[in-house]
Design a protein around this nucleic acid. Structure first.
Lengths: 143, 143
DNA sequence: CGGATATAAATGCAACTGCATCTATATCGA
DNA sequence: TCGATATAGATGCAGTTGCATTTATATCCG
């Protein structure tokens, strides 16, 4: 049941590439005095939906964050006034997570840095056609 | 400076694929009662070299582990008798990290599970030629 | 209706990471 | 040779993650 060398090599490079690029991006965000990428993911999901609000479990599904981690991430974001929690009428257990105006502003500020960083660390190394090929191959892995 | 959609899509899928596959592999190791993947990486590097020993900074270079993290990982591995630290003659600041027989056995036990997991979570989804293509594209990113 | 079960989210705790700092030893240059 | 600087590795601490458990509310079924 030993995987082929092709396979092993691809996996090792996947780990390495992700680590290198993610590290570089996080570093760029930190240098700009901005919060880590996880915050961006949450803000993006919230700003994508019309009402600017989602249930925590919906955010979970979209971001692959584990429930307790999301709960505490929301605590931190709420402390920074980027989101606010509101009661969910109709189910006493539930709540809405609502993005604030400050949250929208933060998402945009983060995107400026994130986009430049992506361009520098990925875009500069991959032509568009290559990126498409990569995306297709990677898509097979998450399914 | 906005990255193309191709680029963004590739990056998001890279993050997702790595998270999904790594999560599955770690889960398989844990289910088998084995330590996490980081331990494997260290054991592998040590077992690869003829004398079965490396300086900590050499392990760092090969695994991308941060120095303080490696230092403590070695503590844990030493507690489990998988490696042992020895003085490095010729530089009083340095040391050797030596893999023990138990360490070699552990590496092999981990590889059995790791290999099966890789096969299941990557191999089953990617033909060899695709894996080669993926590896080539990913190689461009770490450079 | 009322007890068993399920679901939404929070909390406690241990392990791990990143980061800054510290200690000890080496090296370099006046 | 000696003080300044660099390097190897360890340690302290705060922030984060994973995992198990808890709390509160819903739902389901006899």
């Amino acid at each position: 049941m030993t995987p082929s060398t092709s396979l092993t090599r691809a996996w090792i490079r996947l780990m390495r590439a992700q680590r290198v690029v993610l590290g570089a991006i996080e570093q760029d965000l930190k240098s700009a005095g901005l919060p880590p990428l996880g915050w961006y993911d949450v803000l993006l999901e919230l700003s994508r939906v019309e009402a600017g609000r989602l249930r925590p479990y919906e955010i979970e599904d979209r971001t692959l964050l584990a429930q307790p981690n999301l709960s505490r991430l929301l605590d931190r974001m709420e402390r920074m006034s980027l989101v606010r929690r509101e009661a969910f009428a109709g189910d006493g257990r539930g709540q809405w997570v609502v993005i604030t105006e400050a949250g929208r502003v933060m998402r945009e500020r983060m995107w400026v840095v994130y986009a430049a960083s992506l361009q520098a660390h990925v875009g500069a190394k991959l032509a568009d056609a290559e990126a498409d090929g990569l995306a297709d191959l990677l898509a097979k892995l998450s399914r």
